[in-house]
Amino acid sequence: MPHGAVADPDEGQVDQLYAETRQLRLQGFLLFLVSDVVLFSSFIFAYLYLRNTLPAWPPPGINRLDVGFAAFNSVVLFGSGVTMHYALESWKHGKFARYANFLIATIVLGAAFLAGQGYEYTNLYMREHVSWSGSGAFGASFFTLTGMHGFHVFVGVCYLTVLLLQSCAGVYTKEKYFGLTAGTLYWHFVDVIWVVLFSIFYLI
């Protein structure tokens, strides 16, 4: 078997294989995120379309969404994006403790965002009497889109917890840590989707 110009066959084979496999997985994962973006875009299109067909938005009898709390909750989620970024940076520089702290902070902030979302849902349902199926296109689009996003955050929190346990168990090394890159990509994706959802639901 030719091994190219690599001196140590075994060593060379593993690293070349890792590099090529990593590239495949990276592209595949990014394409998966692209298709997820399309999924969100379709629902966003549906929301904007329904909103556009109605004479008034929000429909009569429904109050505007509370911008203040949403801004607070958004900052919680955006903050988790920053901590995730620094978690990966720390890992790249071999600072494990710093990495673990940042990752735990990310998980906590993500969970806090979910709690905030739960608080907002409860508020809407109990005080404003807005529900998924009983409030026309408003409830349908708002709860479907934010619920879908919340589900992605939930999956992300679980995913990051698994990554934390895996990295404690020594699955990743300083050179080979594609799982962490993928986790960071996913978490950033979840953040960035929220930028769009926050803008279209609360700001316009």
Partner: peptide
């Protein structure tokens, strides 16, 4: 180039 996926 050798040693990669193609040889795996």
């Amino acid at each position: 180039a050798g040693g990669g996926i193609a040889d795996h």
